[in-house]
Nucleic acid binder design. Structure first.
Length: 104
DNA sequence: CGTGTGACGCGAG
DNA sequence: CCTCGCGCCACAC
């Protein structure tokens, strides 16, 4: 009887991702108690409030899940770069920049 | 109500 | 590396 997962619940977790680090959709899903609800995360982020560090959320392959040529896609990549995150062949090394939520 | 649709994930081939 | 399929969750029609 799990209650409906609200967007706010998701945003709370996203807000905890420290600058210079990234989290995956699946990771956020697990943190809110929906191990297989990764899709739900993307749905919520698509309509997230301003001020939320949405750019720190990427997919499990370390890639940005937005069209590379889209306005938001380019913005995400730029903002991550500004935080010191390095892209290698359009990909982010999760072992290095992945947010270690367990220790937080 | 049934159906479609994602800023997803993961295993197979 | 790539594509296909299926599971998943909430929501718009």
């Amino acid at each position: 009887m799990t209650p409906p997962l609200t967007d706010e619940r998701i945003f709370e977790v996203v807000r905890r991702i420290p600058p210079g680090h990234v989290a995956t959709y699946g990771q956020i899903a697990r943190l809110v108690g929906r191990p297989r609800g990764a899709r739900r995360i993307g749905y919520a982020l698509h309509r997230c409030p301003s001020g939320l560090p949405w750019h720190r959320v990427i997919n499990a392959q370390g890639r940005i899940s937005l069209p590379a040529d889209s306005t938001s896609g380019l913005a995400q990549r730029r903002r991550l770069s500004e935080e010191g995150i390095v892209f290698i062949s359009g990909r982010i090394d999760l072992d290095r920049y992945g947010w270690d939520d367990a220790a937080n």
